[in-house]
């Protein structure tokens, strides 16, 4: 999903030389955690393409895909409450 965060699995290592140039750029960029939307915007790659490249990288364990909070299950209410408290702190 557009908000999904991506991190390079081993940020200290160089990207494998077999990767496509776009994937190398994603590998390097995600040494600092970023969302798919940000990767797409910063590298100027359309969202759909970014999604495919990132999932290919994830399949090779080169990047880590972070969990997303959708709020659709009651088990996530704790996180939603944390988000609400955070907003109350930031916008007061």
């Amino acid at each position: 999903m557009v908000q999904t965060l991506v991190s390079t699995s081993e940020p200290g290592q160089d990207p494998p030389g077999t990767l496509m140039p776009e994937s190398i750029n994603i590998y390097k960029l995600c040494r600092e955690t970023r969302s798919l939307a940000e990767v797409s915007a910063e590298l100027n790659i359309p969202l759909g393409v970014t999604q495919v490249l990132v999932s290919d990288l994830a399949e090779q364990d080169l990047v880590y895909i972070h969990p997303t909070i959708t709020g659709s299950s009651p088990s996530e209410n704790q996180v939603l409450e944390r988000a609400l408290r955070g907003l109350e702190r930031l916008f007061q």
Partner: peptide, 12 residues
């Protein structure tokens, strides 16, 4: 470091 970084999550 890596593990704590992995705790990051997002919502929209």
């Amino acid at each position: 470091d890596k593990r704590s970084n992995r705790k990051k999550m997002s919502s929209k």
